[in-house]
Design a protein around this nucleic acid. Structure first.
Lengths: 248, 248
DNA sequence: AAAATAGTGTCTCTTAGACACTATTCC
DNA sequence: GGAATAGTGTCTAAGAGACACTATTTT
């Protein structure tokens, strides 16, 4: 209490070793079979590490030799697992405390990513399936028990995603570069887990300049559908919110 | 690249010392003189630490002997500086990298807090003024240069606050327990830095059940005003958003 | 009565949702 | 023509903003 905030923990100055463990975990979402999925990895068994054989979010210790920043670390882990290099990536939050990891006081920096499953994605079937797998989201998590506090982290990610979908263009990042408005609507419906009204959806999407037409159509056993792409591949669009300015 | 995520950094397993420095910083907002302010502290000079004599956000190293969780650490720092024990406290995000602190790879967990300036607040005037001070927010920061990447953190906090004000009850946490609707509107206007229309504001606030009447009035040189309190002192209210469900 | 702020009522305009309608392709 | 999905038009209801109005206190 009498220490000043500037140096209240002498235990952490360089040369002393009582620093928390620092990890990064990534919640990677994708749509498969018309369902929202999250990528999980299976932890090793019999290596003396906590939670052997349990499913966990992909992640691990920050490597201070390799990772220039936390975000770079998250991108590295994402790329290692999926091959994706430019996903939608957003910081989710951090979880830290003395009891979340038996090895000591630890803090994890959690990110969440949205990717589209297409030709470029590293498959996780076959030989890989034993240690990495896409799991369907049920409610605010998955059926399997998870290591550490990853259940909380996943629930926070699902909640964040669902919340933001209400007023942003996030589901577009779950689709390939070009998509139809029906496909976009379907992505919204999958994330929100409820149906949306077609007319209102299209009006709103087109009104916000979220997408631009490309001169191509999706062909099928019916009327071809106009293809669109995101106006910006990087930044999500925020729909108009409330409390408009008032006159003086 | 060939290491697995589960143990890709052997440098961090207990017994080895290459762990990032871990800090917590708190962006504490309050309204003074009808203006939004943030609490800053002045860093020591001539102690060999980085950024001597610079203004910085209150914070510092996690003390793994004292702090059970990151949030507990943030609450401790807030209490030390202001005396406030039950503020509105929200995690803002984390900033980490190899070059933000000359002492080594470091990661900070940033929180933001909203408090009401009233009788219980530790004064920072007089003798304290040299090392802690309320600074007015101008634009998305303060006029003074800040230590580390605290300018970025503060800007993110201001942006988060302004963004959330559009659709939540956050400004209520900048007021004392009991307040009038005019005072609440003023708090919104201060944070948003623009005027709001009285009738629409009142309709909306009352429609959301954000506040409940208390059987008292604010007396003045005019018609007394009904006093209200928050329905919940802890959780903010989220106003209705868009994309309502559609029929099947 | 004047000043000052609290609080309400009414009108308009925008937008979302409901829902039915038209359009264009394949078979 | 029928099936299937794309895409549009119209009506209604709710809510925000503009703005003027009434209400209640002190001086």
């Amino acid at each position: 209490m009498s220490k000043t905030p500037q140096n209240q923990s002498a235990s952490q100055v360089p040369g002393n070793f009582e620093r928390p463990l620092t990890t990064v975990d990534v919640v990677i979402f994708a749509v498969l079979d018309d369902q929202l999925h999250v990528l999980l990895v299976k932890r090793n068994r019999d290596t003396g590490e906590p939670f052997p054989n349990r499913w966990a979010l992909p992640g691990g210790f920050v490597d201070i030799e390799v990772d220039a920043t936390l975000e770079a670390c998250a991108l590295r882990k994402l790329k290692e697992k999926t091959g994706v290099v430019s996903p939608y990536l957003e910081q989710l939050g951090s979880w830290g405390g003395k009891s979340r990891d038996a090895r000591g006081w630890s803090a994890t920096h959690a990110y969440f990513a949205l990717i589209a499953i297409d030709a470029g994605i590293k498959p996780v079937s076959g030989a890989n399936a034993v240690d990495a797998q896409w799991m369907p989201i049920a409610g605010s998590g998955v059926r399997e028990p998870l290591a550490f506090d990853h259940k909380d982290i996943l629930a926070a990610a699902v909640e964040r995603l669902r919340g933001k979908v209400e007023y942003t263009s996030l589901p577009a990042f779950l689709l390939p570069k070009e998509f139809t408005l029906s496909e976009l609507q379907r992505a919204y419906e999958i994330v929100l887990d409820r149906k949306l009204e077609k007319s209102a959806f299209r009006t709103r999407v087109l009104a916000t300049d979220l997408v631009v037409e490309v001169p191509r159509f999706r062909e099928g056993a019916n009327r071809p559908a106009q293809l669109y792409k995101l106006r910006s591949q990087v930044k999500p669009v925020y729909f108009q919110r409330t409390f408009k300015p008032a006159g003086e």
